[in-house]
Design a protein around this nucleic acid. Sequence first.
DNA 1: AAATAATTCTTTAAGCTTCAAGTAACTTGG
DNA 2: CCAAGTTACTTGAAGCTTAAAGAATTATTT
Lengths: 167, 167
Amino acid sequence: MILDSETKAVELPEDHGDELRLWLRLLTCTTLIEGEVRSRLRERFDVTLPRFDLMAQLDKVPDGMTLSDVSKRMMVSNGNVTGLVERLVESGHVDRRTSETDRRVQVIRLTKLGRAEFRRMAEEHETWIAEIFTDLTPKDVRELMRLLAKTKGSAQKAAQKSTGKAP
Amino acid sequence: MILDSETKAVELPEDHGDELRLWLRLLTCTTLIEGEVRSRLRERFDVTLPRFDLMAQLDKVPDGMTLSDVSKRMMVSNGNVTGLVERLVESGHVDRRTSETDRRVQVIRLTKLGRAEFRRMAEEHETWIAEIFTDLTPKDVRELMRLLAKTKGSAQKAAQKSTGKAP
DNA sequence: AAATAATTCTTTAAGCTTCAAGTAACTTGG
DNA sequence: CCAAGTTACTTGAAGCTTAAAGAATTATTT
């Protein structure tokens, strides 16, 4: 703590350059990889990344999930999911029906076509990811996982603090 | 290498689950932080993240830069930058003029207003980032920087390979 | 039971983003 | 010089994304 001549607390600008550089590097990595995956998905399967991501969520749950669940898991807005699902239903990849127990809720699932196409894409997608991370040793991967988990926790705490929400 | 009964090379599906999980975690971290920064920029300064990012690029170069430079640095498409710049010129934050030596080139710079506003925002932005990464020790930060640098290099190699471009 | 609150989802407007195609200007090889 | 190729940027269409407001339904409170 630094006190000025009138004995009042004064904030000195601290240096947070390292954190800023870390954030920019994190963002660069993600943007780079995301762009690569996006362009491969487009040229190999003529599918967009958001559509692939949504189908990936649905592939994990045979009985389907609600739009809200999708929204939370994908960390995008509700309205966004509404539009995405509409296009996936239109193209026959996703099935949507109103919940029997709660008529506000829409339950969506992959159709047979949707699941088949997703599995085909996912297989290749996984090899792309492996190729992209190919320079990392297994130890690097473990260490990155650990540090990113810590980062995620830290970021979540900060986000809670700013919105005043409970965990 | 695995050979089947007719002595033909066969591809067995290798396990790349670790890399896939790493990628998803990386994406989660970035999305989380990006969302937090986006919402704070909006509520504190009523500015969008892309506008802030573009201004950040321009703040680093007093003499301005071309649209192509911005496009490469931000890793977004040319058309995207055209639109962003148009709105920033409209709002008086950015100045744009045609290069004297090459009339294809547009050089853009921050206006006085743009620079003042950006500096004001950047100062606070830096503290947000520090807060978001607050749980990481200096050693964690260094280690993450190192591993992300390695990741970036690996991803760039993979991207080159797929597009057949020179570094 | 009725009013109130909370939730789930949709809609709308504005802006962001990509891709592909197009225009204008510069560069290069013949 | 000039034709062909390259580069820099813009345009247009489609899709993505958010924030905010609204509609419908369910849950809670009184």
